[in-house]
Structure formats: structure tokens, C-alpha cells
């Protein structure tokens, strides 16, 4: 999986491409941790993300907890298989998620 972090002022956009599983979740976690300082708007662009496992959910949940204090967070361009995971885990109701 490849992760890219683009900072634009206080807005941070993180894209993930490939499969977000147990081995690749730490990479996403690091990208968030390294760049989240001073960010008021956090956007996850999952347009190229094929697959999400529970390890990925954990990173999103902890990011949401941080952003609850700093600003806002949303997940955009979510593909159907990933959307299913969000729906079945109830994340769709709790987080700001937009389908592709």
C-alpha cells in the first residue's frame, strides 16, 4: 500500500492506494501521526483503496478521536467494498463518509 500526505495550510489530505490491512495499517498511522500537528481539517481520500480490514478501522477511529479536539475529519471517494465495511461496522453513522 502507498500512502501520500499533502499538507495545504491547516488542511491535511491523506491518500491510500492498495490494501489497508494488518501489515500496512502502521504506515497509514505514521502518515497521520507525522502530519496531524496543527491540522484543523483532515481528509482521507480512499479513491484507490481496494480493501479495508479492522486494523485500518483502528487508525481511522483514533484519528477521529484526535480531530474531535482539533477540528473536522471526513473520508471521501469510498469504493463499494470499503463502504460495506464501514456500513457493517457502524462507522458510517459515526464518521463523515462520502461514497465515490
Amino acid at each position: 500500500m502507498t500512502v501520500n500526505a499533502i499538507k495545504d495550510g491547516t488542511k491535511l489530505t491523506i491518500t491510500a492506494e492498495g490494501k489497508l490491512g494488518t501489515t500496512s495499517a502502521p504506515e497509514l498511522e505514521k502518515a497521520v501521526k507525522d502530519n496531524i500537528g496543527g491540522v484543523t481539517e483532515l481528509v482521507f481520500d480512499f479513491g484507490k483503496l481496494e480493501y479495508m480490514a479492522s486494523a485500518g478501522l483502528r487508525v481511522l477511529l483514533s484519528s477521529a478521536k484526535v480531530m474531535k479536539k482539533q477540528g473536522s475529519m471526513k473520508i471521501i471517494n469510498v469504493t463499494p467494498p470499503v463502504m460495506d465495511v464501514f456500513t457493517f461496522t457502524g462507522m458510517a453513522d459515526v464518521l463523515d463518509i462520502e461514497a465515490i
Binding site: 461496522t89 462507522m91 453513522d93
Partner: peptide, 12 residues
Amino acid sequence: KPGLMLAGMDGV
């Protein structure tokens, strides 16, 4: 319709 997984976030 599911709720959020347990211990994910408080107040659910």
C-alpha cells in the same frame, strides 16, 4: 443496522 463497534468511541 449496526451500531459502532464497542470501545470505538464513547457516547454511542
